[in-house]
Structures are given as C-alpha cells and as structure tokens.
Design a protein around this nucleic acid. Structure first.
Length: 439
DNA sequence: GCGATCAGGT
DNA sequence: CACACCTGATCGC
C-alpha cells in the first residue's frame, strides 16, 4: 500500500501525520476511539472535546497546535527515506468551536486546507484570521487552496450571523408567551445561543450530553438541563419535526427555529428576488414587525427575514459556512494558484474554479479529472441556469438541475457517490513537480 | 461482539 | 436539496 505523508480530515489510509480540522462527523469518518495510526494534530478546543466523541482515545497521540503559531513537523520521505520538514499553521476557521484551517509549507510549496469555514469580513475573528494568514504566508504565493465550497453558488446569499442572531432574538421576543425550541447539532451555533441568552437574560435548556460540551467550552452557567427555569430550549435538530411541534403545541404554544444556510437559496440577480420568492409555493415568507407578523411578499424582500416553513417552524439563515460572496472575498484575498472544492457529494456541486478561475494565478489549470463526473454535472447545472435565466422560478431550476445531474449520472455509467469522503492526503513530495494531492 | 462500510432516513 | 447527524443491516475479523 502506498505510504502517505500527511492527511487532513482523512483517516482510512496510512500517513505519517494526521490533521483534524474540527469534530463534525463528516470530517471524522474512519477516526475511532482505538486510533493508533499516528499523531493527530488539532486545535486545543478540539483536543478538549475529542474524548467526549471518542472515549478512551489515546491522548498521547494528540498534538495541540496553537492558533497562528507556526509548527514544524519532521517526516520521512517514503521514497527517498530522507527527513523532510513540513511547516503548518492553524488558523481560526470561524465555523464551530475548535474549527481551524491548516496552512502547510513544504518542498511542495504551500497549500491551504480551509476545512469548513465562515469568512464574515465584519467579524473580528475573521480579521484576526486574515492577519494571521498574511503573516504566515509572508511573501509566498499560495499554491493549492482546498476550499469549503458548500455554498459556492450565487444562489446562496445570507447575512452575517450577528445580524441573524438579532433576528432570532426579535422573533423570540415577539412570541412572549411561547416556548421556543431551536434545532442544533452536537457542535456549533453556540454563539447564537449565547446571543439569545444575553439579550433575553435567560438560561437555555440543552440535553445532557450537550451540557457537557458547553461545560468544556466554559459556557456551563448559561445552559441548563432543567426545563422549568427557561422557555428556550436547544434540541437536536432532527427532533425538530412538524409532528413534534404539533405535539408540543397541544401542551403549550411553541415555535421551532431552524438555523441553517440551506433553505436560503436565492436568485443571483437581485431584481429576480421578489419574483422568485413569490413564485415559491413551497415556503411562506414572514417578517415580524413590531410584534405582528406580515407576509413579506407584500412589503418587499428582506434578504434576511425568517422563513416560515409551516405553522410552527421558522427557518433563519444562520450559517456556519461561507456564502457565495464571502467565498469570493476569501479567494480574492488569498489569490491561490489552484482551487479544489472539498465538498463534492452535493448534487449541485460546482467546481469553484468555474466561478473563480479568473482570480487564480494558474489560468489554464486543472480541468477536473474526467473520472469526477460531478465537474461535468456542474457544467450542466450552469447551462440550465443561463438558459432559463429569464422569467423562471429558481426553485424549478434547482429541480431541473438535480434532474440533469441524475440523467448525466445514469448516462455516464458512473454511480454518483452519495457519501463523499472529505479531506486531503499528500502521498509524496520528493519531486515537487509531481506531488500527488489526493482529494 | 466490534469496527468499518453502506443504505436509508430527517 | 442535505447543513450534520442518526439507525440499522451486512461483512470481516
């Protein structure tokens, strides 16, 4: 078996050093409590949280990287047997607690793996990350950028999380007699809950395992597992179903709030905004103004109004991934030679190079390898988008695009990979012109 | 019985 | 759709 050098968010093949960007399960597939393949580098918060996910994990394998501080890792070239040094810097990814990007320098040049990240230029944390990236890059030009391209499509547009957090506060305040349930995952959205807690001067209920996580993050006194002292509860997102909300409402008036970037697909063209929204019969849009709720299609589009999914559940565009314009700003700042998306399981995957190739140094780059059918699909999706750019509902476009994706998949005898592994692995670098980056 | 992987669900 | 999960079946050890 081929010996690898370093792996990022990849755990199934041998390497000499392993890097974990954050503790969401789609980045830890293959990692287990019995891990013994090699040293695992991560941020200090991730290191503190890791034993809760993997009890009994061999802590002597953990290597904590301080944010912004360069660290040298000595490795042995699998081919030549010579010692080689790789420099790595962890940078705050502003995604979930402990999440970092990794910037590597080596004989292969430089590469940046963003993990999942949010690039809110209005946020202090992003400004600090920006300064650290500049500092770590020095005069070097970035070679390969492995990018969180989750929302790398102009359809995706949402405001900074601070803005949305205040909307959630307003939404809760406009329902003074309601219980509130907010759908969250095992890690992430803590800042939203802290904002709510501060603004409304209330503790927030979480389930017991989540309270343990909050304690590790030093938020212990804001959260509780006692239902009787607060009307605001954060619950596992999968439990926030219409049926559950109906059941809860037989006991006490309750609204659900779903923080997510996902339903917030918007036309790239602002002129189409109200058109697209009013044509959508899948969702009703509501805005709360002074405590009374009005249909926003009558008062014009706010780019950030809570979206009413049904009688009891609101969706708010609180996203831990960068939206399209933020991705663009990030790439304009970083100016890499090459880009590859690390999220490719999505049926609406678009090769980031499609939109941002002109911002890259190496112009004729990488047409994605033909074995990756999703890059072909991206082309199809784009064609549909331009063909139907006049007078069509964007939600229909999404459906058509998906259909095209499926058809293309069927035609090409290649099955669409449902579970796409994330992460990258560098297999060798003795010859810098032929370094293999395995995505 | 455990881990890894996969199919299927929200 | 699938953000980031979860459950349950199957296979190999």
């Amino acid at each position: 078996m081929e010996e690898g050098l370093i792996s990022v968010d990849r755990w199934s093949e041998p390497s000499q050093a392993y890097f974990l960007s954050h503790l969401h399960t789609d980045h830890t597939k293959g990692l287990s409590r019995r891990w013994k393949r090699g040293p695992l580098f991560c941020s200090s918060i991730t290191a503190k949280l890791l034993p809760t996910r993997f009890p009994g994990f061999n802590l002597s394998l953990l290597r904590v990287l301080e944010i912004g501080t360069p660290h040298s890792v000595s490795l042995v070239s699998p081919k030549s047997g010579l010692e080689i040094t790789v420099q790595v810097v962890a940078i705050d990814a502003n995604h979930c607690p402990g999440a970092v990007m990794y910037l590597f320098h080596g004989e292969f040049g430089s590469m940046l793996y963003t993990g999942d990240f949010r690039w809110e230029t209005t946020s202090d944390r992003t400004q600090i990350a920006k300064a650290m990236l500049l500092n770590a890059l020095g005069d070097d030009k970035l070679g390969m950028l492995y990018l969180d391209n989750t929302y790398c499509n102009p359809w995706f547009s949402f405001p900074p999380r601070e803005v949305v957090a205040q909307q959630v506060v307003d939404l809760i305040a406009s329902h003074p007699d309601h219980d509130i349930v907010i759908g969250i995952n095992t890690l992430g959205k803590e800042d939203l809950l802290l904002h709510i807690s501060r603004a409304l001067k209330t503790k927030i209920w979480v389930w017991p395992e989540r309270l343990q996580t909050m304690h590790i993050l030093s938020y212990g006194d804001i959260f509780t597992t006692n239902t009787s002292i607060t009307r605001v509860r954060a619950v596992p997102r999968e439990s926030l179903t219409i049926d559950n909300l109906k059941a809860l409402n037989t006991v006490r008036p309750t609204i659900g709030i779903m923080p997510s970037g996902l339903p917030w697909v918007r036309p790239a063209n602002e002129k189409d905004a109200s058109h697209g929204a009013s044509h959508s019969n899948r969702h009703k849009r509501k805005m709360t103004i002074g405590g009374s709720s009005v249909d926003s299609s009558k008062v014009g589009e706010s780019p950030s109004s809570p979206l009413m999914l049904n009688h009891h559940v609101y969706s708010v565009p609180y996203s831990d991934h960068s939206c399209f314009t933020e991705i663009r700003e990030f790439i304009e700042f970083i100016r890499p030679s090459y880009i590859k998306g690390i999220v490719s399981s999505s049926t609406w995957y678009i090769n980031p190079f499609h939109y941002f190739g002109n911002l890259c140094g190496a112009h004729k780059q990488m047409e994605e390898s033909s074995k990756n059918i999703r890059s072909d699909l991206a082309e199809n999706v784009e064609i549909i988008q331009t063909e139907s750019s006049v007078g069509h509902d964007k939600f229909d476009e999404v459906k058509i695009s998906t259909k095209v994706v499926r058809q293309a998949a069927r035609k090409s005898r290649v099955s669409v990979v449902r579970r796409e592994r994330k992460g990258v692995r560098i297999t060798h670098m003795d010859d810098s012109s032929r370094t293999d980056f395995d995505v």
